[in-house]
Design a protein around this nucleic acid. Structure first.
Lengths: 137, 137
DNA sequence: CCTAATCGGAGCGATTCGTTCCGATTAGGC
DNA sequence: GCCTAATCGGAACGAATCGCTCCGATTAGG
C-alpha cells in the first residue's frame, strides 16, 4: 500500500521536468541538481520513463529529454505504471495460476473492483496539478 | 502500489472469519484449512489483527477468535492499516525529517490529497461486501 | 494440580528493491 | 572524414525489508 521509492522519485523527477515546460530539453544531471536526487538514480528513472513513452530522449552529446506529452495529459497513474508495472493490489489480478489458494480464494472476484477504484483515484491527479506550487482545494 | 502478501492474506483470512458470522468462535487452524494459507502465517495474521482491534481473541484450550465488529463496519482500509501501518503513498506523509530532499521537494504538499483519495477508495469496500459470493455491480 | 491446546513474540532465510558502475550510441568539433 | 566528449541504456553488486518457521507464555479443561 506504499509505493516504492523509485516511483516516488519518479514523480519528483517528472515534476522537475515539467517545470522545463517550454519545450527546452534538459538532462539527467540537471534534474538531479534541481531535485537533490542521486544522479545515477535519475538516470535510471529517465530510462524507464523513456521506455514507457512519457519522455522523449535524445542520446549523444548535447542530448537530453523532454516530456512526450503536455503535463496535463500525464497522470500519476501513468508515472506509477511506468516504474512499478500495472497497478494491481494483488498478484492474482494480473498474473494467473501462480496463486496457491486460487481455488478457495473467495475474495479474488472482488479485487478488480478495488483496483479500478485505486487507479481512478490516481488518474485524477495530473502532472500539471503537481507542478503548481499551491495545492488545489 | 501493490500491497504486501501479508495484507493480501489478511483480507482472505478476515473474509473466512466473517463467514463464521454467527458469532461462533473459530481458531487459526480452521481458517488455515478453509483458506489454504499456511497455518503459522494465519497465526501471525490473527495476532496482528487482534492487536489492531479487529478480532477478539481468547487464549488457552478451547479458545479462538471472532470479529470484534460487524462485517459491515470493517473496511479494507482497516485491514490494510492493521497489517501495513498507516496508509500513505510516501514516507514523508507520515514521518517527518527523514527525507533528504525535503527542502526542494515541491511535490510534497500534494501527497496528502493523493493519500485521501486512495484511503477513500478503500474505505468504501466493506468486509460484508467481500464476504458475498457475487461481486456487486 | 496437571495436561493439552492456543495465542504471542523472536529468529532465520529468501526475495525484492535501491544503488552504483560500465558499455553502447550519437552529436559536435577539428 | 575522423576523433573526442557527453549522454542514454543495461547489467552487476550490496542492503534492507518481507515472508516463513520455530519456540515460549498463557489459559481453559480434566
Amino acid at each position: 500500500m506504499r509505493l516504492s521509492s523509485m516511483a516516488d522519485y519518479a514523480v519528483v523527477a517528472m515534476r522537475a521536468a515539467a517545470l522545463h515546460c517550454g519545450g527546452t530539453r534538459t538532462n539527467a544531471a540537471e534534474i538531479a541538481a534541481e531535485t537533490g536526487l542521486p544522479a545515477p538514480t535519475v538516470q535510471k528513472l529517465v530510462s524507464r520513463l523513456g521506455q514507457a513513452g512519457l519522455l522523449n530522449s535524445v542520446r549523444g552529446s548535447g542530448g537530453g529529454f523532454r516530456l512526450a506529452r503536455p503535463a496535463a495529459a500525464i497522470t500519476l497513474a501513468d508515472i506509477v505504471e511506468a516504474i512499478e508495472g500495472p497497478i494491481a493490489m494483488t498478484t492474482c489480478a494480473t498474473d494467473t495460476g501462480d496463486c496457491a489458494i486460487e481455488g478457495t480464494c473467495g475474495a479474488r472476484p472482488h479485487w478488480p473492483q478495488v483496483n479500478r477504484a485505486i487507479r481512478g483515484a490516481l488518474e485524477q491527479i495530473t502532472l500539471a496539478q503537481l507542478a503548481q506550487e499551491e495545492v488545489a482545494a
